Amino acid sequence: MSLQLTPESQQQAIASIERYFREHMDEPIGNVAAGGLLKFFLQEIAPVAYNQGVADAQERLQQRVAEIDIEVHHAPFTYWPQPARSRRS
């Protein structure tokens, strides 16, 4: 599965890769090469981050579902108040 970016996000990602190479590598990278590198990352590495995000979301949702009983629980049979002591003597 290859993740897809919007055209705007893809342009920004390519520009970011080009800037990274200018500032941190000995040689700059061109637009076409940066686009190829981005495509590789999206196809090869991005699914790892995506799957981790899904797993994190599942864990969080499971925690919330487990807590829902605490948040919305209502005690049954509360119409009749509990007597402090028996009325019969």
Rank of each mutant, 00 (worst) to 15 (best):
L61M: 08
P47T: 13
T6M: 06
Q62D: 12
G35K: 05
E8W: 13
I45V: 13
F21Y: 08
V32H: 12
Q58L: 13
A46P: 07
G35W: 03
V48R: 11
V48C: 03
N51M: 07
P7D: 12
I14C: 05
I29M: 15
M25L: 07
L38F: 00
L61S: 15
R19N: 05
Q58A: 07
F40Y: 15
R64C: 01
G30T: 14
E71P: 00
Q43N: 03
I29L: 12
R22L: 06
H74E: 05
H73L: 01
P81Q: 04
A84H: 09
Q11T: 09
G30W: 02
P7N: 08
Q10N: 10
W80G: 02
G35M: 06
M1Q: 03
P83D: 04
E44Y: 10
E67Q: 14
I68G: 04
R87S: 11
Q63M: 12
F21E: 08
Q11D: 14
P81A: 11
E8L: 13
T6Q: 11
A55Y: 09
A55R: 08
Y50C: 09
H73E: 03
A15P: 00
A49Y: 15
A33T: 02
A13V: 01
G53M: 10
A84K: 15
N31V: 03
S2F: 00
F21K: 14
L37C: 09
S86T: 09
V54M: 05
Q52H: 01
I70H: 09
V72L: 13
R22G: 05
S2Q: 08
I29H: 02
G36T: 01
A46F: 04
S9I: 00
Q12P: 06
S89E: 07
L61D: 10
S16D: 14
I17T: 01
P7C: 08
Y20C: 02
I70A: 12
V54Y: 07
L3W: 09
A15M: 02
Y20G: 00
I45R: 15
V54L: 12
R85E: 13
A66M: 10
S16N: 05
A34Y: 12
R22A: 08
I17D: 03
Q12W: 00
E27A: 14
D69C: 04
E27F: 12
R85Q: 08
A15G: 01
P81F: 10
D69F: 01
